[in-house]
Every structure is written in C-alpha cells, then in structure tokens.
Design a binder for these strands. Structure first.
Length: 274
DNA sequence: TTGTGTTTTATTGCCTCC
DNA sequence: GGAGGCAATAAAACACAA
C-alpha cells in the first residue's frame, strides 16, 4: 500500500494537495477494505510519533480511518504553547509537530480552532461585562429618577406654602390700606375690606366684628400701594378671593409690582411646572 | 441502548500580505 | 502566486438523560 506512505509524507500534507486525514481515509476505504467501528475502537487515539506512524509493524493496525482525538498529553502541551503565543510561526509549528508526533498541518489546525474557541469565549466575556455594566447603570438611573421625583414634589409643596403665605400677607395689607379717604366710593371699598377681614378673622378664630376705625388704621401709611399710583385699589381683595376659588391659578403673585418693588425674581422657575 | 446535544478535529473557500 | 489566517461548515467523538 504505497499510496498510504506517500500520503503521510509531510510534504504532501499541504493545503491544496492530498488531504491527509479525511481524504486519506477515503483513499484507504476505496483502495483497501473498510474497517469496522469495532476495529477502529481498538486502535490508539493517534500515532505517538511520525516514526511510529511509518513503522511497518504498526502500519496495518494503525491506519487512520477517522478523526482521532488528541491525547491529553498532546492537548496539554498544545495548550501551554498556545498560552505562550497564540500564533504559530513555521519553526515552532515544526518543532511542536515533531515533539507531539503530529503532522504540522494538525498543529496548525489545532491552533486555528483554538483561536476560534478563544474568540468565542472572549465575546462571551465581553458580553457579560457589558451586561453587568448596563445593569449597574440602569439601576443608578432608576434611583436618580426616583430622587428627582421626590425633589420635584418637595419643590411643589414648598411653593404652595409660600404662595399661601403671600396671599395672607397681601390680604392683610389690603385691609390696612384705604386709597379713597373722604371719597364717596369709600363705602364700597370698606365693604370689601370688611369681607376680607371677616374671612381672615374667622380663619384665625378671632371676632368677625368690624372695627369702624379700620380705615383710619389703614391710613398709617404702612402700605405696598401708594395711593397716587393705585386710585381704585379694591381689586386685589376681590382677586384674593377669586384666587382662592380658582385652584388652577398659575401661582403667580397678583401684585406684579409687588415683586418688582422688592427687586426679586420670580419665586420659582417655569421648569418646575413643565 | 439510543437519541440528542456538545465538543473536537478537519475541510473549504475567501481574503490579505509579501 | 504562494502562504497563512479566518469564518463557516462537516463529521466523528463524546457526554448524558431517558
């Protein structure tokens, strides 16, 4: 069976030339007898050396019919070599092949497959790393969103408190202020003031009885509204009431000049309501 | 024992580099 | 154009549950 010997010549085990195991197997099958699986299982996993392979005594019994797994020792050495360097220079390939009793082509194929396995594992590792990073970021984001919601609702409740205090302050100021001393319209203005005070008094549990000296007290001059600029300043008191009725107000002060008067900016920003 | 899924070994075709 | 690498794939070997 000379063809078998030629087949295992390393120079013939070249890419593009006769393929040394798969096609070799076919050659052997076609040229000689087909071996049974039982016979195959009796054989060692692979030749331990090229010399052994070409040994006439072993030849008939060790025809490489099918794929053989490498021995644990061979795999161990290949793994060690791969750890040192995952690429295979021609010299190293030849040396390894000699040492392991394999064809250089087998060593090359093993390294190629090993690189493919390493790449697959690397992709898995990268995926795991990215996934854990993503999960961590996601949980951080969730807690930040909750924190943001909490702070927003805090801002809303504090803003409402401030508005309520502003309204009370404005109502008290309006009650103390009499823009029409001696005027005929003073009567109606006074009636509105009575309404406002009545409401405030009933809130605080005080007496709702109107002091007829009220207007005189308001003349003390402790007012936000100089009478020259606000000759008919009865509206704010009514607006206080409408503001209370209208819970959907925009939260702004009804006395635009009031804020300007104190040189303050708007107490809260538009973004709070967006 | 057998069916099935996984791993390992090997091939093929294409691509790049020198 | 040859050598070598890689992706895709085939097929044998192996592991394991039913």
């Amino acid at each position: 069976m000379e063809s078998g010997r030629l087949f295992f010549d390393p120079s013939a085990c070249h890419r593009g030339s006769m393929l040394f195991l798969g096609n070799c197997d076919n050659i052997f099958r076609g040229g000689t007898t087909m071996m049974s699986m039982e016979e195959t299982s009796k054989r060692p996993p692979f030749f331990s050396s090229p010399d052994e392979l070409l040994d006439d005594d072993n030849y008939d019994e060790q025809l490489p019919e099918k794929k053989r797994r490498l021995t644990p020792e061979q795999v161990h050495l290949l793994e060690k070599s791969f750890e040192a360097e995952n690429k295979l220079e021609p010299d190293r390939k030849t040396q390894l092949a000699k040492k392991l009793g394999l064809q250089p082509r087998q060593v090359a194929v093993w390294f190629q497959n090993r690189r493919a396995r390493w790449k697959t594992k690397q992709i898995e590792r990268d995926y795991d790393f990215l996934k854990s990073s993503y999960d961590s970021l996601l949980s951080n984001c969730d807690s930040l969103v909750k924190e943001n919601e909490k702070l927003k609702s805090e801002v809303v409740s504090l803003t409402e408190k401030i508005q309520a205090e502003d309204r009370v302050g404005a109502a008290i100021s309006a009650q103390k202020f009499d823009p029409f001393p001696g005027d005929i319209t003073h009567v109606s203005a006074l009636r509105v003031n009575v309404k406002a005070e009545d409401r405030l008094s009933s809130r605080s549990g005080e007496s709702a009885v109107v002091d007829e000296d009220g207007p005189q007290v308001m003349d003390s001059g402790d007012s936000y509204f100089p009478s020259d600029n606000y000759p008919y300043c009865v509206a704010p008191v009514d607006m206080v009431q409408s503001e209370e009725d209208n819970k959907s107000g925009d939260g702004r002060n009804y006395f635009p000049d009031h804020d300007q008067h104190h040189g303050e900016e708007e107490p809260f920003s538009w973004w709070m309501w967006s």
